[in-house]
Amino acid sequence: MEQDDDRPPADAATALQLIRDQRAATVSRLEPDARLLYWPWGVAWLVGFGLFFLRFSPDGRVLVRLPDWLPLTALFVLLAAAAVVQAVAGARAYGQVTGDSARRGRWYGCAWALGSVSVYAGLGRVSEHLPHDQAGLLWSATAVGLTGALHMAGGAIWLDRDLFRLGVWISVLNVVGAFAGPGWHALVVSVAGGGGILVAGAVARLRQRHRS
Protein backbone atom coordinates (compact mmCIF):
# COMPACT_ATOMS: atom_id res chain seq x y z
CA MET A 1 0.00 0.00 0.00
CA GLU A 2 2.63 2.50 1.07
CA GLN A 3 4.63 1.82 -2.06
CA ASP A 4 1.55 2.59 -4.14
CA ASP A 5 0.53 5.87 -2.60
CA ASP A 6 4.15 7.06 -2.63
CA ARG A 7 3.92 7.12 -6.41
CA PRO A 8 3.29 10.38 -8.25
CA PRO A 9 -0.16 10.99 -9.71
CA ALA A 10 -0.49 9.55 -13.22
CA ASP A 11 -0.49 12.94 -14.94
CA ALA A 12 -1.09 16.64 -14.33
CA ALA A 13 -4.85 16.40 -14.80
CA THR A 14 -5.09 13.60 -12.23
CA ALA A 15 -3.00 15.64 -9.79
CA LEU A 16 -5.19 18.72 -10.20
CA GLN A 17 -8.35 16.66 -9.81
CA LEU A 18 -6.92 15.03 -6.69
CA ILE A 19 -6.18 18.47 -5.20
CA ARG A 20 -9.67 19.76 -5.98
CA ASP A 21 -11.44 16.67 -4.64
CA GLN A 22 -9.42 16.57 -1.42
CA ARG A 23 -9.90 20.26 -0.70
CA ALA A 24 -13.64 20.12 -1.39
CA ALA A 25 -14.06 16.99 0.74
CA THR A 26 -12.12 18.57 3.60
CA VAL A 27 -14.06 21.83 3.53
CA SER A 28 -17.42 20.09 3.39
CA ARG A 29 -16.57 17.80 6.32
CA LEU A 30 -15.15 20.56 8.49
CA GLU A 31 -18.33 22.59 8.11
CA PRO A 32 -21.67 21.62 9.63
CA ASP A 33 -24.64 21.25 7.30
CA ALA A 34 -26.03 24.81 7.12
CA ARG A 35 -29.58 23.52 7.54
CA LEU A 36 -28.71 22.35 11.06
CA LEU A 37 -27.42 25.81 11.94
CA TYR A 38 -30.38 27.80 10.60
CA TRP A 39 -33.55 25.74 10.37
CA PRO A 40 -34.07 24.89 14.06
CA TRP A 41 -33.98 28.64 14.86
CA GLY A 42 -36.36 29.39 12.01
CA VAL A 43 -38.83 26.78 13.24
CA ALA A 44 -38.53 28.09 16.82
CA TRP A 45 -39.39 31.64 15.69
CA LEU A 46 -42.16 30.53 13.36
CA VAL A 47 -43.89 28.34 15.92
CA GLY A 48 -43.00 30.24 19.12
CA PHE A 49 -43.90 33.74 17.94
CA GLY A 50 -46.77 32.31 15.93
CA LEU A 51 -48.35 30.94 19.12
CA PHE A 52 -47.75 34.34 20.75
CA PHE A 53 -49.69 36.05 17.99
CA LEU A 54 -52.57 33.59 18.27
CA ARG A 55 -52.84 33.84 22.05
CA PHE A 56 -51.89 37.50 22.62
CA SER A 57 -53.30 39.03 19.47
CA PRO A 58 -53.44 42.74 18.57
CA ASP A 59 -55.85 45.01 20.50
CA GLY A 60 -56.12 42.57 23.41
CA ARG A 61 -57.97 39.93 21.41
CA VAL A 62 -57.47 36.17 21.63
CA LEU A 63 -57.55 34.40 18.26
CA VAL A 64 -57.00 30.93 19.70
CA ARG A 65 -57.74 30.05 23.34
CA LEU A 66 -54.37 28.62 24.34
CA PRO A 67 -53.17 28.42 27.94
CA ASP A 68 -51.32 31.61 28.98
CA TRP A 69 -48.08 29.79 29.65
CA LEU A 70 -47.94 27.89 26.36
CA PRO A 71 -46.48 30.43 23.87
CA LEU A 72 -43.52 31.47 26.04
CA THR A 73 -42.81 27.88 27.13
CA ALA A 74 -42.95 26.61 23.54
CA LEU A 75 -40.66 29.44 22.40
CA PHE A 76 -38.04 28.75 25.08
CA VAL A 77 -38.12 24.99 24.60
CA LEU A 78 -37.71 25.35 20.83
CA LEU A 79 -34.92 27.94 21.20
CA ALA A 80 -33.10 25.67 23.66
CA ALA A 81 -33.48 22.74 21.27
CA ALA A 82 -32.08 24.87 18.41
CA ALA A 83 -29.09 25.82 20.57
CA VAL A 84 -28.42 22.15 21.36
CA VAL A 85 -28.65 21.10 17.69
CA GLN A 86 -26.27 23.92 16.71
CA ALA A 87 -23.80 23.07 19.49
CA VAL A 88 -23.73 19.37 18.59
CA ALA A 89 -23.40 20.02 14.84
CA GLY A 90 -20.64 22.57 15.50
CA ALA A 91 -18.73 20.31 17.88
CA ARG A 92 -18.85 17.41 15.42
CA ALA A 93 -17.54 19.52 12.57
CA TYR A 94 -15.05 21.84 14.31
CA GLY A 95 -14.31 19.81 17.43
CA GLN A 96 -10.93 18.53 16.26
CA VAL A 97 -9.67 21.80 14.82
CA THR A 98 -8.06 24.39 17.09
CA GLY A 99 -6.70 27.85 16.42
CA ASP A 100 -8.07 31.12 15.12
CA SER A 101 -11.40 29.76 13.81
CA ALA A 102 -12.17 28.04 17.10
CA ARG A 103 -11.32 31.20 19.05
CA ARG A 104 -13.52 33.30 16.77
CA GLY A 105 -16.44 30.92 17.26
CA ARG A 106 -15.96 30.78 21.03
CA TRP A 107 -15.87 34.56 21.44
CA TYR A 108 -18.89 34.97 19.18
CA GLY A 109 -20.76 32.45 21.33
CA CYS A 110 -19.75 34.45 24.44
CA ALA A 111 -21.13 37.61 22.83
CA TRP A 112 -24.51 35.89 22.42
CA ALA A 113 -24.61 34.51 25.94
CA LEU A 114 -23.32 37.52 27.84
CA GLY A 115 -25.13 39.99 25.59
CA SER A 116 -28.45 38.26 26.24
CA VAL A 117 -27.94 38.09 29.99
CA SER A 118 -26.95 41.75 30.27
CA VAL A 119 -29.91 42.95 28.19
CA TYR A 120 -32.49 40.77 29.92
CA ALA A 121 -31.26 41.73 33.37
CA GLY A 122 -32.22 45.32 32.63
CA LEU A 123 -35.53 44.37 31.02
CA GLY A 124 -36.53 42.25 33.98
CA ARG A 125 -36.23 45.28 36.26
CA VAL A 126 -38.40 47.47 34.04
CA SER A 127 -41.01 45.21 32.50
CA GLU A 128 -42.80 44.38 35.77
CA HIS A 129 -44.02 47.98 35.85
CA LEU A 130 -45.53 47.80 32.35
CA PRO A 131 -48.90 46.52 31.15
CA HIS A 132 -48.70 42.90 29.99
CA ASP A 133 -48.85 43.61 26.26
CA GLN A 134 -46.26 46.40 26.43
CA ALA A 135 -43.94 44.26 28.51
CA GLY A 136 -44.22 41.47 25.93
CA LEU A 137 -43.37 43.84 23.11
CA LEU A 138 -40.40 45.25 25.03
CA TRP A 139 -38.98 41.77 25.62
CA SER A 140 -39.43 40.45 22.14
CA ALA A 141 -38.34 43.63 20.34
CA THR A 142 -35.16 43.78 22.44
CA ALA A 143 -34.39 40.09 21.96
CA VAL A 144 -35.01 40.25 18.21
CA GLY A 145 -32.99 43.49 17.95
CA LEU A 146 -30.02 41.86 19.70
CA THR A 147 -30.32 38.86 17.38
CA GLY A 148 -30.29 41.09 14.30
CA ALA A 149 -27.24 42.99 15.51
CA LEU A 150 -25.32 39.80 16.34
CA HIS A 151 -26.13 38.30 12.94
CA MET A 152 -24.72 41.41 11.28
CA ALA A 153 -21.65 41.16 13.51
CA GLY A 154 -21.29 37.49 12.54
CA GLY A 155 -21.43 38.49 8.88
CA ALA A 156 -18.63 40.98 9.55
CA ILE A 157 -16.48 38.44 11.43
CA TRP A 158 -16.70 35.71 8.78
CA LEU A 159 -17.23 38.08 5.83
CA ASP A 160 -20.44 36.15 5.15
CA ARG A 161 -22.71 38.34 3.06
CA ASP A 162 -25.78 36.15 3.57
CA LEU A 163 -25.42 36.15 7.34
CA PHE A 164 -25.03 39.93 7.30
CA ARG A 165 -28.11 40.29 5.08
CA LEU A 166 -30.12 38.11 7.44
CA GLY A 167 -29.10 40.42 10.30
CA VAL A 168 -30.23 43.47 8.32
CA TRP A 169 -33.52 41.75 7.47
CA ILE A 170 -34.19 40.84 11.10
CA SER A 171 -33.34 44.36 12.28
CA VAL A 172 -35.62 46.00 9.71
CA LEU A 173 -38.60 43.78 10.40
CA ASN A 174 -38.07 44.30 14.12
CA VAL A 175 -38.49 48.05 13.58
CA VAL A 176 -41.60 47.44 11.47
CA GLY A 177 -43.09 45.12 14.09
CA ALA A 178 -42.27 47.46 16.97
CA PHE A 179 -44.09 50.33 15.27
CA ALA A 180 -47.03 48.10 14.37
CA GLY A 181 -47.41 47.35 18.09
CA PRO A 182 -48.03 44.43 20.47
CA GLY A 183 -49.41 41.34 18.76
CA TRP A 184 -48.42 42.49 15.30
CA HIS A 185 -44.77 42.34 16.28
CA ALA A 186 -45.13 38.63 17.05
CA LEU A 187 -46.79 38.02 13.68
CA VAL A 188 -44.07 39.86 11.75
CA VAL A 189 -41.25 38.12 13.63
CA SER A 190 -42.91 34.71 13.22
CA VAL A 191 -43.61 34.89 9.50
CA ALA A 192 -40.94 37.24 8.13
CA GLY A 193 -38.28 36.47 10.76
CA GLY A 194 -38.76 32.71 11.06
CA GLY A 195 -39.36 32.46 7.32
CA GLY A 196 -36.27 34.58 6.65
CA ILE A 197 -34.10 32.27 8.74
CA LEU A 198 -35.47 29.21 6.90
CA VAL A 199 -34.70 30.84 3.54
CA ALA A 200 -31.21 31.87 4.72
CA GLY A 201 -30.56 28.24 5.73
CA ALA A 202 -31.66 26.97 2.33
CA VAL A 203 -29.45 29.53 0.55
CA ALA A 204 -26.44 28.67 2.74
CA ARG A 205 -26.98 24.95 2.05
CA LEU A 206 -27.15 25.56 -1.70
CA ARG A 207 -23.87 27.47 -1.53
CA GLN A 208 -22.25 24.60 0.38
CA ARG A 209 -23.38 22.08 -2.22
CA HIS A 210 -22.27 24.31 -5.04
CA ARG A 211 -18.75 24.48 -3.60
CA SER A 212 -18.30 20.71 -3.22
Binding site: L30, V97, G99, D100
Partner: peptide
Protein backbone atom coordinates in the same frame (compact mmCIF):
# COMPACT_ATOMS: atom_id res chain seq x y z
CA UNK B 1 -8.19 23.81 3.25
CA UNK B 2 -7.84 24.73 6.94
CA UNK B 3 -7.90 28.36 8.03
CA UNK B 4 -4.51 30.06 8.21
CA UNK B 5 -4.13 29.94 11.99
CA UNK B 6 -5.81 26.54 12.48
CA UNK B 7 -4.45 23.14 13.49
CA UNK B 8 -6.18 19.78 13.19
Amino acid sequence: ALGDGDRI
